[in-house]
Lab assay of single mutants.
Amino acid sequence: MTEYKLVVVGAGGVGKSALTIQLIQNHFVDEYDPTIEDSYRKQVVIDGETCLLDILDTAGQEEYSAMRDQYMRTGEGFLCVFAINNTKSFEDIHHYREQIKRVKDSEDVPMVLVGNKCDLPSRTVDTKQAQDLARSYGIPFIETSAKTRQGVDDAFYTLVREIRKHKEKMSKDGKKKKKKSKTKCVIM
């Protein structure tokens, strides 16, 4: 069974824990209790493949930012979460993405942009803004509501699919490099 290491990042209060708990335990946590770091595991079937999701729910508070490099190193894919009623959390996505790329030393890291709290009427981040940002990053965008469960499975499952595509691409690139290195030079 394939294991996928997913990391949920975003500013404090955007609903990272609520999304994760909704996926794992099928219930909505409405009281806000700032996370330092929590880890969850769940076995699911995605596109006919049974897999184990190892999900790291991270601290959004700035005082825990020193811990970010460590979990970013171990993560295979990242859910970059903002709240649709919090423009600052949307603007912060850029910083999370840049930090992930720096730590992973790669421009090509599996990510999904997630606009959470889409059940709320007080939207300050337009869907088109988020779609445009995701398009500019070359990553999928999904709106979710941890409260109603809308888009929750889709967000995590899409990230797994992005990781699969990335692994497939990397193995193809690896095979191309191996083929090239088999060419021999004969000096007579």
Rank of each mutant, 00 (worst) to 15 (best):
V114H: 00
Q70C: 06
S106G: 14
K117E: 11
Y71P: 15
K101L: 15
P110Y: 01
V125Q: 13
A66F: 13
F82R: 00
Y96G: 02
F78A: 01
Y64L: 05
F78R: 01
D119Y: 02
L120W: 11
E76Y: 13
Y64K: 03
F78S: 01
V112C: 03
F82Y: 11
Q70P: 10
T124W: 07
T74F: 05
Y64A: 03
N86R: 03
V114D: 00
R123W: 08
L79P: 01
V125M: 12
M72C: 08
G77L: 09
S65P: 10
H94R: 13
A83E: 15
V125Y: 10
G115W: 07
Y64Q: 03
R73I: 06
S65I: 05
N86W: 02
D92A: 14
Q70Y: 05
C80H: 03
S122H: 11
F82M: 13
G77N: 01
R73T: 11
D108W: 04
M72Y: 08
P110F: 02
N86E: 08
R102S: 10
D108G: 06
E76D: 15
V109F: 11
S106T: 13
L79V: 10
K101A: 12
D105W: 04
C118W: 09
K101M: 14
I84G: 15
G75S: 08
V114M: 06
R68H: 08
P110C: 03
R97V: 15
Y96V: 13
K101C: 11
E107C: 15
I84Q: 15
A66L: 09
V81R: 00
C118S: 11
S122M: 09
D105V: 04
E63V: 03
E107G: 10
V125W: 09
Y71H: 10
Y64S: 04
A66G: 13
V114T: 02
R97G: 05
V114E: 00
G115C: 10
S122I: 08
R123M: 12
V103L: 12
G77M: 06
V81A: 05
K117F: 15
T124K: 10
G77C: 11
V125G: 13
D108M: 06
E107T: 12
K101G: 06
T124E: 14
I84K: 14
I100G: 01
R102P: 02
V109H: 03
L120E: 13
Q70E: 08
D69R: 06
P110H: 02
V114N: 00
A83R: 05
D126F: 07
G115S: 09
M111L: 07
G115L: 13
S89G: 07
F82T: 15
F78G: 00
D69G: 07
S122P: 09
P110T: 03
D126R: 05
G77Q: 00
A83G: 15
Y64C: 04
M111W: 04
N116P: 00
D108L: 04
Y71I: 07
Q70K: 10
R68T: 06
R68Q: 08
D119L: 03
G75H: 09
V109M: 04
R68L: 04
E76I: 14
G115H: 05
G77F: 13
V109P: 06
K104C: 14
C80R: 00
Y71M: 07
M67V: 06
V125K: 11
V109K: 03
R97A: 14
V103R: 05
I100W: 04
N86F: 01
V81T: 10
V112P: 00
R123T: 14
T74Y: 13
F82P: 00
F78C: 02
R102H: 06
T74M: 06
S106L: 13
V114G: 01
E63P: 04
V109G: 02
G77W: 02
S106A: 07
D126S: 10
P110N: 02
G75R: 04
Q70S: 14
P121E: 15
A83K: 05
Y71D: 12
T74A: 13
C118D: 12
K104H: 14
D119Q: 04
K117T: 12
L79N: 00
D119T: 04
I84N: 15
P110A: 03
V114R: 00
E98I: 01
A83P: 15
P121T: 12
V125L: 10
R68C: 06
T124R: 10
G75Q: 05
F78N: 01
K88E: 13
T74C: 09
L79F: 04
F78T: 01
K117V: 15
C80P: 00
G115K: 03
I84L: 14
R123L: 11
K117N: 12
D119C: 05
D119A: 05
I100F: 07
Q70T: 09
V81I: 07
V109T: 05
S65Y: 07
A83C: 05
K101P: 02
D119K: 03
E76T: 13
P121F: 12
M72T: 07
V114I: 12
C80Q: 03
S122A: 11
D119E: 08
C118H: 07
R102F: 06
K104D: 04
C80E: 02
E98G: 03
V112N: 00
M67P: 06
E76V: 15
V112D: 00
A83S: 14
P110I: 02
P110D: 02
P110R: 01
V114Q: 01
M72I: 07
N86Q: 06
